[in-house]
């Protein structure tokens, strides 16, 4: 096995062991979307009518509509949680251990990113399992098709988190940033309402939602859950991933990055 793959498997194993030992984190990640699904969606079901739009071929309940958005929400929170732990690790020192390994820094950061994404995928499948028991049945192939979509959206959101972690120098600043990122990103997206609904109240809000990469992650997942590909969403997600990963790698580069911008001779 090459040193690259050894490092990858070690980082994945470490993250998996953390995931197993931190059961509270797993439960917290599930409680949030389940509250939205069971409490919020039930309340809004009567108020929000939804017309037939792709990928749906028939009328759907509001609970069915928000499931993809809640899957993306799990990944969004997981990405921010991973970014928070990166900032914590950097302050507390264990990130230093990783960054002083004799491997390219981009590879080490990518391994860390991938480990976080795999954890988020496990969380999403657990959520989909509970939603199934709650009565939200999706096409069987959708559960398979959604895997690569979750990988793509998780990588995109993880790259955004990695970039944020590279720009934030102190742990205390992170809570504020999370609020400024998570809530606008989630609410200004198609996670809770379709674009045409947004357009009815404000064209500007609709345009913002259409531009928000999180909307495209949601739509990628939504189509995949019905065994369909949304190519536009995939391109948006891939592009956003590439941009934020490049920015994050720049941020963590000791010679050029944000981490040392004040430390240049």
């Amino acid at each position: 096995m090459s040193p690259y793959l050894r490092a990858l498997s070690a980082i994945l194993l470490r993250e998996a062991l953390r995931f197993v030992t931190q059961r509270e984190r797993f439960l917290a990640a599930l409680v949030r979307p389940l509250v939205w699904l069971i409490v919020f969606a039930a309340g809004f079901r009567a108020a929000l009518g939804l017309s037939i739009t792709p990928p749906y071929q028939t009328y759907i309940t509001y609970e069915v509509y928000i499931v993809p958005g809640l899957c993306a929400m799990i990944q969004l929170f997981n990405a921010m949680q991973s970014a928070l732990s990166l900032v914590y690790d950097r302050e507390m020192g264990s990130m230093r251990l990783l960054l002083t390994a004799p491997l390219p820094r981009w590879w080490l950061l990518f391994c860390k990113l991938l480990a976080g994404v795999l954890v988020s995928i496990l969380q999403v499948y657990a959520f989909l399992g509970i939603a199934y028991l709650y009565g939200i049945r999706l096409p069987l192939m959708g559960y398979v098709w959604v895997l690569p979509a979750l990988l793509a959206s998780g990588l995109m959101l993880g790259a955004v988190g990695l970039f944020l972690a590279s720009t934030i120098r102190q742990l205390e600043n992170f809570a504020g940033v999370m609020n400024f990122v998570i809530f606008p990103v989630f609410f200004l997206s198609t996670a809770l309402y379709p674009l045409w609904r947004m357009a009815e109240s404000s064209r500007l809000l609709r345009d913002i939602c259409a531009f928000n990469p999180f909307s495209h992650a949601v739509e990628l997942i939504r189509f995949a859950l019905y065994a369909r590909l949304n190519p536009d969403a995939l391109v948006w997600v891939a592009l956003t991933f590439a941009i934020f990963l490049a920015l994050a790698l720049w941020g963590f580069d000791p010679a050029r990055g944000i981490m040392t911008r004040k430390a240049r001779p």
Partner: peptide, 28 residues
């Protein structure tokens, strides 16, 4: 390198901490 701040993973065993580091340095 031994850093000033502790960089161990407290939830892992002693052996697993060593194995993690060994893998980062390319050891089988």
């Amino acid at each position: 390198v031994v850093f000033q701040q502790m960089t161990l993973d407290l939830d892992l065993s002693v052996a697993r901490n060593l194995a993690y580091f060994g893998a980062l340095h390319g050891l089988s």
